[in-house]
Design a protein around this nucleic acid. Sequence first.
DNA 1: CTTGGAATGTCAACAAGGCTGACATAAAAT
DNA 2: ATTTTATGTCAGCCTTGTTGACATTCCAAG
Lengths: 167, 167
Amino acid sequence: MSDGTGRGGESLLFLTDEQLKKGIEAMFFAYRGFTADPDLILDDYGYGRAHHRAIHFISRSPGTTVNNLLSILGVTKQSLNRVLRTLIEDGLVESRVGTRDKRERHLHLTETGQILEADLSRVQRDRLRMAYRTAGPEAVAGFRKVLEEMMDPEMQRHFRLLKESGP
Amino acid sequence: MSDGTGRGGESLLFLTDEQLKKGIEAMFFAYRGFTADPDLILDDYGYGRAHHRAIHFISRSPGTTVNNLLSILGVTKQSLNRVLRTLIEDGLVESRVGTRDKRERHLHLTETGQILEADLSRVQRDRLRMAYRTAGPEAVAGFRKVLEEMMDPEMQRHFRLLKESGP
DNA sequence: CTTGGAATGTCAACAAGGCTGACATAAAAT
DNA sequence: ATTTTATGTCAGCCTTGTTGACATTCCAAG
């Protein structure tokens, strides 16, 4: 609908290397802004982005297993384990041995964990909402579309499985 | 112009927390895809993303000073220095003492450095071009607009100073 | 039933690349 | 002449990635 074989496709052929480089730089600078606000909060707790990512995806999929989290985060289980251990020790995450399969650990945020998650999420959503509001709704749709196309296929799969609006 | 008090602003008020979270996750997954291809090349050289960033911005602003690079990259001079030292030792970057101000070092890519830069840039531009093409030109405009709004103001300033199309 | 392999998670050790702090040098600015 | 600025270096720390070794659990084949 927005991109037939007409004007759209053709004008894209005129993308210069420098325009693409500006896109690359936009991603770089924007990602810094994107993480800046949560980083401030995390510092207070002695945590880093790895903790934030774990907390975020546990919050989004309560009861998820370590293995599932691994495939989403794309790190080694040893890396994830270190982060999870501190979160569990600090009482932010609870690890329940699976009932059906006792090898699995199902991860949940504790109440304390939910509070931190809410704080982190709020500042990050605020930044995004502000950017969305200034850019306008059509820009938002384009933003999402390009980002989705930039993902590796396996990440696209994970991404699409996350819920957008209540079930 | 695109976002008065009309339709645009109002529809944005309906953004749910979950829609915003999907935006957050899109940034996370997309950034992984964004860096994946250069990371493969960098591995062959024993380099990391820090090297890539230095190479990229030296290439974009030949003759830039260490201090200018620091403010763009947002790291400490010790961190940057470690990376620059290896790049200079390996003959990818040349550091020329300033003529007007001899305290400054002006950084340039050597021919070897330009070859690596070209390789890194090509795969990253290819990924972006593919995403742009699939998403369509209007999506691209929105993508760029939202990213720009997501940056911290100082980064916006740096971003806008980078050339988009020949001078 | 037992044994062996696969899946899952933990512990240990190492490397990259952030960080701070202290300090040296040289040039520029006052 | 003194201070400030730009840069570089050394030492040491932390986070977060990595690999290797190992324990536990499940399941399936003999």
